[in-house]
Design a protein around this nucleic acid. Structure first.
Length: 421
RNA sequence: GGAGAGAUGGCCGAGUAGGUCGAAGGCGUUCGCCUGCUAAGCGAAUGUAUGUCCUAAUAGAUGUACCGAGGGUUCGAAUCCCUCUCUCUCCGCCA
């Protein structure tokens, strides 16, 4: 959520910034609702004050007739208050819904463009592998070697589910541990293992709700939602808290499965394990002071990239333009790995700075010292990394001509004496 | 799942025949005093959010809301009633 004061005080500026996102945002309507709301609040507060005074007078009054008259007066006031409250809650409901659907403001340096064509690859890392044969796709190798079972995945759960088997199941497990270990041991993140199901407040806090309920799984009985990313439970650990500045930045790394409905058009990304309803991810999350957020974002990107450097996987860093920015981000960089089999660049991480956008929704604050006012923190996160696509990159970059997969040096300790899958 | 108890300010803890309670007292914290040092002692201050006025001001003045959450009764509710959530104890069940 953006600060409503910005709309109150710098409406034209906000409108101009929102135009960069190329989506309509009802700033004027919000402004007017806010004005009416505040006037109503003021009026009803005045009435409450009169009521309070009259009530006290009743308490000390002896004369029955005067008491009766005053009671009557207060009753009338109460009727008025009731009317105003009803009107007020209608305004508030509408205003709140609108505000929850207003996207974050883009950071100043984000390139302006209406769609993903404005994204720019700003740097490339690690040499592409040279093959003396035509590299195969991961799904070809997976099926041929009986390492991925697509048919039975569909049988037990439906489309876009698959089963990893034997060496690939182990590879994923090794990668999860490897990523966690690197972030814990070399990048100073604290591991947490959060719930995979969360309440509605969490998803509103990090910005998935109310706008993106279509992409989420929910258990109607309990009202709990399946997490689409560990960002949700981990950031919400601090919901409704005031943190002391010594604790910042808080750096967490978490492994979770992630669940998304991904109602994509049929036929897109259907092959292989690139996009499923359930996938594993190691997520890195930071909670920081506003002034350090930029710096923390650079660090976070480097931390995510370090995983790929250690695995020696070719990848590039892409700066996301305004039109392709996610709803909650003020600034975002994607990391894409190169998969030679399917011959595609695959997004394995999205690293975002959310500024105070999530903190305002989730009410996460910090104090600079005991006597200072609580301020909203900045939240940041990025994948570190998403498993299926790193799996694709490992399989396709490390494949041998006869369909085996060489185990990357960085993963050796997780595999004992094995050299190939 | 069954039975019982409870939820008050940074913490502990008063407050239940409804009014002067934003809430006693203690601890803690901050400032000052005092004292060879420290400790102790003395004095003062000390919730959050939001609005209005006024301002150079996050300074002041003042309003409103908040005693787990939501609703109700009443002129008036931390105090009475209802619903929900959570915590604790005992029993049951279970990885």
């Amino acid at each position: 959520m953006i600060d409503i004061k910005l709309i109150r005080e710098q409406r034209e500026y906000v409108k101009k910034e929102m135009e960069k996102l190329f989506v309509p945002v009802p700033i004027d309507e919000i402004f007017e609702l806010d004005e009416s709301k505040r006037k109503l609040i003021y009026d009803s507060e005045c009435l409450r004050n009169t009521r309070k005074i009259l009530s006290k007078e009743i308490a000390s009054e002896k004369d029955e007739e005067i008491i009766a008259a005053k009671k009557n007066e207060v009753k009338k006031i109460n009727d008025l208050i009731k009317l105003q409250e009803d009107e007020l809650s209608a305004f508030e409901e509408r205003l709140n819904l609108l505000m929850l659907n207003v996207p974050n403001l883009p950071a100043a340096e984000v390139p302006v463009c209406k769609d993903e064509n404005g994204n720019t690859a700003i740097a490339y890392f690690n040499e592409r592998k040279k093959f003396s044969f035509e590299p195969k796709t991961h799904y070809y190798i997976g099926q041929k070697r009986d390492l991925i079972d697509f048919e039975r995945g569909v049988k037990i759960s439906g489309t876009r589910f698959y089963i990893l088997k034997k060496g690939l199941a182990k590879l994923q497990r090794a990668l999860i541990n490897f990523m966690l270990d690197v972030h814990i041991n070399y990048h100073d993140y604290e591991e947490v293992y959060p719930p995979f199901m969360v309440n509605e407040e969490c998803l509103t806090g990090t910005g998935q709700l109310p706008k993106f309920s279509d992409n989420l799984y929910k258990d109607e009985d309990s009202g709990l939602w399946f997490v689409p990313t560990a960002e949700v439970p981990v950031t919400n650990m601090y919901r409704n808290e005031v943190l002391s500045i010594e604790k910042l930045p808080i750096k967490h790394v978490a492994y979770t499965a992630c669940f998304r409905k991904e109602q994509l058009s049929a036929g897109k990304d259907t092959k292989g394990i690139k996009r499923g309803h359930q996938f594993d991810k190691v997520e890195i999350v930071k909670i920081a002071t506003p002034e350090t957020a930029k710096e923390e974002l650079s660090g976070l990107i480097a931390d995510a990239q370090d995983i790929l450097n250690r695995l020696d996987i070719p990848h590039r860093l892409v700066q996301i333009c305004t039109g392709d920015l996610s709803f909650t981000a003020s600034e975002k960089y994607d990391i894409e790995v190169f998969a030679p089999g399917i011959n595609e660049w695959l997004e394995v991480s999205s690293c975002s700075n959310f500024g105070s956008f999530q903190a305002r929704r989730a009410n996460i604050k910090f104090k600079r010292d005991k006597n200072s006012k609580a301020e909203f923190v900045a939240t940041l996160n990025g994948s570190g990394l998403a498993l299926p696509r790193v799996m694709i990159a490992v399989i396709e970059n490390y494949q041998t001509e006869d369909g085996y997969i060489k185990i990357p040096d960085a993963l050796k300790t997780y595999f004992g004496h094995d050299e190939f899958i």
